[in-house]
Write a protein that binds this DNA or RNA. Structure first.
Length: 262
RNA sequence: GGCGGGGUAGCCAACCGGUAAGGCAGUGGUUUGCAAAACCGCCAUUAAUGGGUUCGAUUCCCAUCCCCGCCU
C-alpha cells in the first residue's frame, strides 16, 4: 500500500515505539523497513514511560514532514487511544504526573472516590468508580489544574465532533477462529524467533513496558515457574483479549472502514 | 482380581438433603493522557449413567461405566 501510494509508514503502536521490544511487539522487520520508509519504530528506551500525549508530540512533526515532502503518511498500528489523539488532538488537560500517581496509588480506592466526589461531583457521576485508573486520573486532573475535570473536559468534548474529513482509514477484520489461529502462530514464531533472549536482555523497564504481553509470561518460564506450553498459552490468551479490545475500540471509530480478510 | 479415593460448565474447583460459590478461558462493552493498560456486564434450569429412598437429592442407598492410588 505504501509503495502504491508513494507513502511512508508511521507507527501508532504504543509498544513498537520502544527499542528492545521488537520481537515481542511484532514490530516490522529490517527487511520491511528497508522496503519503504518507516517512522517511530524503536525510538524510545524501554526505561521511559510514554503516554498518548508524548506519542502525539513525536508523531505530529514526523507526519508534517512527510506531507511537506509530498508523500502520503500511512499511520499503522493498534493503539486505539494513540490513534485517537492523532485524529482528535489532545484535550486541554494536564499531563499525568508520576509522583502524584504514586501517591494516589497508595491510597484506598474508596478514599479517592470520596475525594473526587467532593472536588468534582459532576465528573464523579460519570466516571466508572470501580476503575481505579479512571478515578485516579479524574482526581489527578483536578489536583494538577486546580479546576474541575468536568469543566475542562466539557470544553473539549464539544469540539471533537468535527473530525477532519480528509482522513481515510481501514480496520482489518478476521473471523474469530482465523484470528485465534494466527495469534497462536504468531506467538509460536516469536518464541522460536528470539523472544526469550529479547526478554532476558531487558533491564530497568518502565512500569509501562513491564506490561507488554510476553514479558511477564516469558520471565515466569525462564524462572521455571511455568512450562513452555503454559507460557505460550498465556501469551496467546493475553493477545486474544487484546485483539478483542481492539475490535471494540475500532468498531466505534466510525471513520474507519472495515476490511474483511476472509 | 482386591482395597481405597474420585467422577460438578472448555479447564481448575467449592458446597454436600431444600433446589449449583469462585477462578481461568470465552463473550459483549467502557475508553483523551500507564491503553499490549485498567475496569464493567454476560456466561451450568444442571451435577458420569440407570434405578431407589424422600415432600424434596448434585448431595443418602444400589447397580453400571470411567479415572487415580495402593495391593495382588
Amino acid at each position: 500500500m505504501a509503495e502504491k501510494l508513494d507513502g511512508e509508514i508511521v507507527n501508532a503502536d504504543a509498544f513498537q515505539l520502544y527499542r528492545g521490544l521488537e520481537i515481542i511487539s511484532a514490530a516490522p522487520s529490517e527487511a520491511e523497513k528497508s522496503q519503504v520508509p518507516h517512522h517511530l519504530y524503536g525510538v524510545l528506551e524501554p526505561s521511559i514511560a510514554a503516554d498518548a500525549g508524548n506519542y502525539l508530540h513525536l508523531a505530529r512533526p514526523v507526519i508534517a514532514d512527510i506531507q511537506a515532502r509530498g508523500k502520503t503518511p500511512i499511520i499503522a498500528g493498534g493503539s486505539g487511544l494513540y490513534l485517537k489523539f492523532l485524529t482528535h488532538g489532545p484535550a486541554p488537560l494536564p499531563q499525568g504526573d508520576a509522583q502524584l500517581r504514586a501517591a494516589l496509588d497508595s491510597r484506598p480506592l474508596a478514599d479517592l472516590v470520596a475525594e473526587l466526589e467532593t472536588l468534582d461531583p459532576v465528573e464523579a457521576a460519570r466516571t466508572a468508580l470501580k476503575n481505579r485508573r479512571f478515578v485516579s486520573r479524574a482526581l489527578e486532573i483536578c489536583l494538577l489544574s486546580g479546576q474541575k475535570a468536568s469543566t475542562l473536559r466539557d470544553g473539549w468534548e464539544t469540539q471533537t465532533a468535527k473530525l477532519a474529513a480528509h482522513l481515510r482509514g481501514y480496520v482489518i477484520q478476521r473471523r474469530r477462529p482465523d484470528l485465534h489461529t494466527r495469534i497462536a502462530r504468531r506467538t509460536h514464531a516469536m518464541l522460536e524467533g528470539g523472544a526469550i533472549a529479547e526478554v532476558a536482555a531487558l533491564t530497568g523497564l518502565s512500569a509501562n513496558c513491564e506490561k507488554a504481553i510476553g514479558v511477564r509470561e516469558i520471565r515466569a518460564m525462564v524462572a521455571g515457574e511455568i512450562d513452555r506450553i503454559t507460557c505460550e498459552e498465556r501469551i496467546n490468551a493475553a493477545t486474544r483479549q487484546y485483539a478483542k479490545r481492539q475490535e471494540s475500540w475500532f468498531r466505534r471509530e466510525l471513520w474507519l472502514k472495515p476490511v474483511s480478510m476472509e
